[in-house]
Simulated assay, not measured.
Amino acid sequence: MHQILNSTSRSTFLKQVTGFTAVAILSVSAFALPSDRNQPISLVADKATYNDKTGITTYTGNVVIEQGTMKLQADSIVAQLNSKREIQTITANGRPSKFQQQISAEKGVARGEAQKIIYNADSGIITLTGNAYLFQDGASIRGNSLKYSMNKGDIEAQGSSSNRVQLIIPPSSSKSFPGARD
Rank of each mutant, 00 (worst) to 15 (best):
A30W: 04
A22Q: 14
T57Y: 04
Q73V: 08
Y50S: 09
A92Y: 05
N82Y: 04
F20A: 02
T18P: 05
S27V: 03
K47N: 13
K15S: 13
R10W: 11
I90R: 02
Q88H: 12
Q80P: 00
E66P: 00
N82W: 07
K47L: 10
D36H: 13
A45Y: 05
T91M: 10
I41G: 01
S11N: 14
S35K: 15
K53T: 06
T91F: 05
T18R: 15
K15A: 14
V44C: 03
V78W: 08
A45N: 01
I87C: 04
S9C: 10
V44R: 08
Q73D: 05
T54N: 10
R10L: 14
T21C: 07
S42V: 03
A30V: 05
A74M: 07
T8I: 15
D75I: 03
T60S: 15
L43I: 06
I87V: 15
S83D: 15
Q80A: 06
L43K: 00
K84L: 09
I87A: 10
G55P: 01
G61N: 05
L81P: 01
T57W: 03
N51H: 06
I56K: 13
S76L: 04
I65A: 02
V63I: 03
T60I: 10
A48H: 01
G55H: 00
Y50R: 05
D75Y: 06
I87S: 06
T60Y: 05
K15I: 12
V64C: 06
G55A: 07
D36Y: 09
I90F: 01
T57I: 10
V28K: 00
Q73N: 12
S35A: 14
I90G: 02
I87F: 09
S76I: 03
I90Q: 01
S11F: 14
I65E: 00
V28W: 00
T21M: 09
I77K: 06
A30K: 06
F13W: 12
G55Q: 02
S7G: 14
Q80S: 10
Q88T: 02
P40W: 01
S9H: 11
F13V: 06
Q3G: 08
L5S: 12
V78R: 14
T89I: 07
L33D: 15
D52F: 10
L14I: 14
T21H: 11
E66C: 08
F13K: 13
T89W: 09
D52P: 07
N62Y: 04
D52I: 11
I25M: 01
N51G: 06
S11H: 14
T58F: 09
N51Q: 10
F20P: 00
F20N: 03
R85S: 15
K53I: 03
I56F: 08
S42F: 07
S27T: 14
T18Y: 11
P40Y: 00
L81Y: 02
Q67G: 07
I77R: 05
P34I: 08
T8Y: 13
I87T: 13
T91S: 11
K84C: 01
K47V: 07
